[in-house]
């Protein structure tokens, strides 16, 4: 599991790769949160294109980042999800608070 982070203006993009479960989510959370604290982006893009597995730990990861970034009025955009990942994500009701998109940006 890995995450590649890039910043362009007010947009922070985290490109995730591999499998997201409780074991790997801890490290991902730390890396993304460090970058958020450093850059205070107004938009966080979470790119799931290279994620091939995710359980509810992934939902927790997105929800947690949403809570964090909305304190500074930032928004979250989730994209690049495969059908299987989208299926898990949809179950969460996250659609009402973050923008979910299967498309790749």
């Amino acid at each position: 599991m890995s995450v590649e982070i890039s910043v362009k203006g007010e947009v922070l993009t985290a490109r995730l790769a591999g499998e997201i479960d409780h074991h790997t989510a801890v490290g991902l959370r730390k890396e993304i949160d460090t970058a958020i604290d450093l850059n205070l982006p107004s938009l966080l893009v979470l790119d799931f294109e290279k994620v091939n597995f995710m359980d509810s730990s992934g939902i927790g990861l997105v929800m947690g980042r949403y809570k964090k970034i909305s304190r500074t009025k930032g928004e979250v955009y989730v994209c690049g999800m495969s059908q299987n990942i989208f299926k898990v994500m949809k179950l969460s009701g996250l659609e009402s608070i973050v923008k979910l998109d299967k498309k790749i940006v």
């Binding site: 939902i59 947690g64 179950l91």
Partner: peptide, 15 residues
């Protein structure tokens, strides 16, 4: 707490 969604059983039930 904060980092868990509380959706594990919901996933098991629906999948």
């Amino acid at each position: 707490g904060d980092e868990r969604a509380g959706l594990g059983f919901a996933v098991m039930q629906s999948f």
